[in-house]
Simulated assay, not measured.
Amino acid sequence: MTSRLLMIEDDARLAQMVSAYLGQSGYEVTHAGDGESGLEQLPLLQPELVILDLMMPGIDGLEVCRRIRALPNGLSRVPVLMLTAKGDPMDRIIGLELGADDYLPKPFEPRELLARIRAVLRRRGEAGASPERTTPVLRFGSLEIDRDARMVQVRGQACDLTSYQFDLLVAMAERAGRVLTRDQIMEAVRGRELEAFDRSIDVHIGRIRNAIEDDSKEPKRILTVRGVGYVFAKQQE
């Protein structure tokens, strides 16, 4: 089955090269040359993933990502892989904070882009396939995580998480009470070998806390274990 991808990139030559390469692996790439046209095509195309350039004239990639995450009817949950030509880690952090699922610095090898796309889509497709799974819904007090519907609710209110953040939350919730290092968390979502900037886990955890905690500055559900990693508390303190 062909997977539909939307590439929002102002470099037409790069987009053509990427489209040809990914096409050999069964991906159908639609190219949009700027942020406005990309946002217009998104609801029409309903892609499995968006490849989004950070630096574009007009609406830049950060603003496009922000608008995607504000879209209705499930479109806000489409995975976003952000391309950036900048070396400053802050650009990557901002992108992740706005809801990007992964990032890839330019210039990049097409094989690495393909690997990252596969990893993001695999995380979405295999979410909740843990052998520890016995029920599609995990419940922790007012927090409900529906693995089949890929939905998180707190007191009946839906939480806004990206597909990667959802997978991170499920991985931690399935291991509630266990202290996990960042490497163990990344390995649990099968992204360890592709994640060069491990502090991005901290960014994603911060976003999850903003969504599920009553006070993200004083978290009760996802706790930091200094010098080690994180633990998902079975019982809120």
Rank of each mutant, 00 (worst) to 15 (best):
R226H: 11
R209I: 09
S216N: 06
I222D: 09
N73E: 14
L161R: 00
P105K: 03
G74W: 10
P110A: 06
E97P: 02
M7S: 09
L168F: 10
A20W: 15
R209S: 13
G99Y: 02
L22M: 15
D34V: 05
Y103V: 09
R147T: 12
M1R: 14
E195K: 07
A20T: 15
R124L: 11
K217C: 11
S37T: 15
C65A: 11
K217A: 15
L143W: 15
I145P: 01
E174G: 04
T181G: 13
G61M: 05
G23T: 08
I94A: 12
A176N: 07
R199F: 01
S25A: 14
L52K: 07
R133M: 12
E213W: 08
E63F: 02
V64T: 05
S142H: 10
R92W: 05
E174S: 02
V203C: 12
L121R: 12
S216K: 07
G74Q: 05
L54H: 11
D91V: 02
V170Q: 06
P89L: 10
Y27Q: 12
V189R: 01
F197Q: 12
H204V: 04
R66P: 03
V120P: 04
L6R: 08
E126H: 10
E9I: 00
L22V: 13
R13P: 08
T30E: 13
T224Q: 10
R69A: 04
M7K: 07
N73K: 09
L138V: 05
R67P: 07
K220F: 01
G61F: 02
E193W: 00
A211N: 12
Q41N: 02
E213I: 00
R192L: 14
R13H: 15
E174F: 01
V80S: 07
M56N: 13
G128I: 02
R207H: 10
C65W: 03
M56F: 06
S216H: 06
